[in-house]
Design a protein around this nucleic acid. Structure first.
Length: 643
RNA sequence: GCCGUAGUAGCGUAGUGGUAGCGCAAUCCCUUGGUAAGGGAUAGGUCGUGAGUUCGAUUCUCACCUACGGCACCA
């Protein structure tokens, strides 16, 4: 064994130290500032505690707070501090796991008595004490059996189970912070003081052990943690902003929709909301016409037999709404999806390969009995409308059809105000139908088609539908949140199961391939996304009310009515406000209502046949001839695809 | 479905073992005001539903419903 090790820094500089030197010592050798700032090092790319000895030559990098990796490290250390605090305050609580996550961390505990929101400040306070105490960290490697016996012995059965599942060739490392210790892969900082105190505990939740609803339910405590107070405050402000644009809040403020107990998980669209809904629906419809789709409408109630044949009855019976009548001895299913119905239309008449592909679209009203806990505003509902379509095609057509759909979807998202779209390829799930050879083929076809459309994709393993793999299209909204909306799924099974066939060039009968696809997914959910994306300040073509005409004095009422009539005659959506109120008041009201254009009319305007226009969010106003204003706003209100 | 929290006037909220206030909105009156709340008056609530404890429950207890924050689920 050599007595020295040589470490190479990122700039290529090599330093030699006695064997067993630590990252902390190396940082100190380089400079006192770095010694203080260092958090951990990477050793040949592997994260390594500062206090852990280095036994061989390696390339190292010293990570400080400034490096982006530090956030995850802080959050992981913070999870440990949370666990320490909870075990100090609530003896007998078992620890399980506590990872760093986006924006923060959590820790799952096993404890008979539930935590309540009142506990959070107490736990936070205890955490601050632990951080302030600057407890030193120590790492030990234990034999597996010793570790299992130890944790069992102190009543930590979940930890013992975790250790038992660690591969036998991996070290079981134990980290100590003062006298508290935990099984952990590491790395950790030298002392708890280095973590900093830019954190806040945010919420409590139930969570299943190992993410499985069949297992025991643990109690999860979430927190957010940052490098400094400034970052923390920025995060908290960001959360407040997100709350302000919550679609449920804006839906109420702008009188778009409501949901009530008599129709749990379903939406009452008010006139304003339905205006937005129709604007979106009509937009999609125009794109479908352009892309050579046919549009159909199918029944809401379909005999159970059809769902048995399609395979859905077996897989999703408990999520279906059923309808029965006394006189008829049969069960009807309120359709949870449209595919079997579309196959019925396909099956009418004999189809030739010359007719394929047939692109059959429907704004399909679907109902699914979603678990009560999953309902969320208009984003996750039990009654919704899909912009659904099924492309009946040959195997050879899968790739070109998928490619052109990818392009269509990208164009639509752009029109709808979303620039960033990412794609995931969800592959075969455990519970599936069809042979592996068929799955291989389907997954390959999707991958190729996506690439051909100029899109990159990530693999989402095991997340496909039971009948085929799917592409999931994820858009990013104006505050950086991701939403999965569009989808394309390859299906080699359903058509065959439902007896669909076409006569191929060779004169034989073949089952068509079905591509299930949707651009926005559900109109309800997509409108929710649109609301939050725009914070209710919609582009003019989507805005439920496009212009508010408000009078300054009663003398202008007649002229205002004339202006409203002229705007309406040009297809603009207008409201008239002749209320006995001040201009200030009216400006405030219509601004808060997020009406994009406010025309203020007084004697001056009536005399000159002009209007004074104030744009939402703008500071000043401009005076325009009535005709000029109308043609300007009419042009602006044209949907993006018709410009 | 599971864990936790909550439900008071159209909306937002205060509060209490002796059946409820406030702000905005609404209605009426005064004011006709030129770009983010002019003034006054009036009306509006079986305090989510059902049961229990109590002389008495909106308040305490239980059950249910619904929503919210997560978990799980999402054809």
């Amino acid at each position: 064994m050599p007595e020295q090790v040589t470490v190479t820094l990122p700039d290529g500089k090599a330093l030699t130290f006695p064997r067993g030197v630590t990252g902390g010592e190396i940082a100190a050798a380089i400079g006192p500032g770095l010694a203080k700032a260092a958090l951990i090092i990477t050793l040949d790319g592997k994260e390594w505690d500062l206090f852990r000895p280095i036994e061989q030559d390696a390339k190292i990098r010293i990570i400080t707070r400034k490096d982006h990796e530090s956030l995850e490290l802080i959050r992981h250390d913070m999870a440990h501090v949370l666990a320490m605090a909870v075990q100090a305050l609530y003896p007998g609580t078992q620890v399980t796991i506590g990872p760093a996550i986006e924006d923060g961390f959590y820790y799952d505990f096993a404890r008979a008595e539930p935590f309540t929101p009142d506990d959070l400040p107490k736990i936070e306070e205890e955490m601050r004490k632990i951080i302030k105490a600057g407890l030193p960290t120590r790492r030990e490697v234990w034999p597996r059996d010793k570790a299992i016996a130890h944790f069992k012995g102190i009543g930590e059965s979940f930890k013992a189970e975790l250790i038992a599942s660690i591969p036998s060739d991996e070290d079981v490392s134990i980290y100590w912070h003062g006298t508290w210790h935990d099984l952990c892969r590491g790395p950790h900082f030298r002392t708890t003081a280095e973590i900093g105190d830019a954190f806040k505990l945010t919420k409590i939740s139930g969570a299943y052990w190992r993410g499985d609803a069949k297992n025991a339910q643990l109690q999860r405590i979430y927190g957010t943690a940052w490098r400094d107070k400034k970052e923390l405050d920025a995060y908290l402000t960001r959360m407040e902003e997100a709350e302000k644009r919550d679609h449920r809040k804006i839906g109420k403020e702008m009188d778009l929709f409501h949901i009530q107990e008599v129709a749990t998980g379903q939406i009452f669209w008010h006139a304003n909301g339905y205006t937005l809904y129709r604007a979106l629906e009509n937009y999609i419809r125009r794109q479908l016409v352009r892309a050579d789709y046919i549009e159909v409408k199918t029944p809401l109630l379909l005999d159970r037999k059809l769902w048995e044949a399609s395979g859905h009855w077996e897989n999703y019976r408990e999520h279906m709404f059923l309808a029965e009548v006394e006189d008829e001895n049969r069960t009807l299913v309120v359709k949870p999806m449209n595919c079997p119905a579309h196959v019925q239309i396909f099956n009418e008449g004999l189809k030739s390969y010359r007719e394929l592909p047939i692109r059959m679209a429907e704004f399909g009203s679907c109902h699914r009995y979603e678990p009560s806990g999953s309902l969320h505003g208009i984003m996750r509902v039990r009654g919704f409308v899909q912009d659904d379509a099924h492309i009946f095609c040959t195997h050879e057509q899968i790739t070109p059809e998928t490619t052109s759909f990818c392009k269509l979807l990208q164009a639509c998202y752009k029109d709808l105000g979303f620039e960033e779209v990412r794609v995931k390829l969800a592959t075969r799930p455990e519970n599936r139908i069809g042979s592996d050879a068929v799955w291989d083929q389907a997954e390959k076809a999707l991958a190729e088609a996506t690439t051909a459309a100029g899109l990159e994709y990530l693999i989402n393993p095991g997340e496909g539908a039971f009948y085929g793999p799917k592409l999931e299209f994820v858009l990013r909204d104006s505050i950086g949140r991701d939403w999965q909306c569009g989808t394309l799924q390859v299906d080699f099974n359903t058509a065959e199961r439902l007896g669909a066939g076409y006569i191929a060039a060779d004169g034989a009968r073949h089952a068509p391939v079905m591509l299930h696809r949707a651009i926005v997914g559900s109109l309800e959910r997509f409108i929710g996304v649109l609301i939050e994306h725009h914070a209710g300040k919609f582009p003019l073509w989507l805005a439920p009310v496009q212009v508010a005409v408000a009078t300054v004095v009663a003398d202008a009422d007649a002229y205002a009515q004339e202006v409203v009539a002229a705007l309406k005659a040009n297809g603009l959506r207008v409201i008239l406000d002749t209320e006995n109120q001040t201009v200030n008041y009216k400006v405030r009201q219509h601004s808060l209502a997020k009406t994009p254009n406010l025309m203020v009319l007084g004697r001056r305007e009536a005399e000159n046949r002009t209007i004074t226009l104030r744009k939402l969010g703008g500071e000043g106003q401009e005076s325009l001839a009535l005709e000029a204003a109308i043609s300007m706003l009419s042009a602006e209100a044209v949907p993006p695809d018709l410009r």
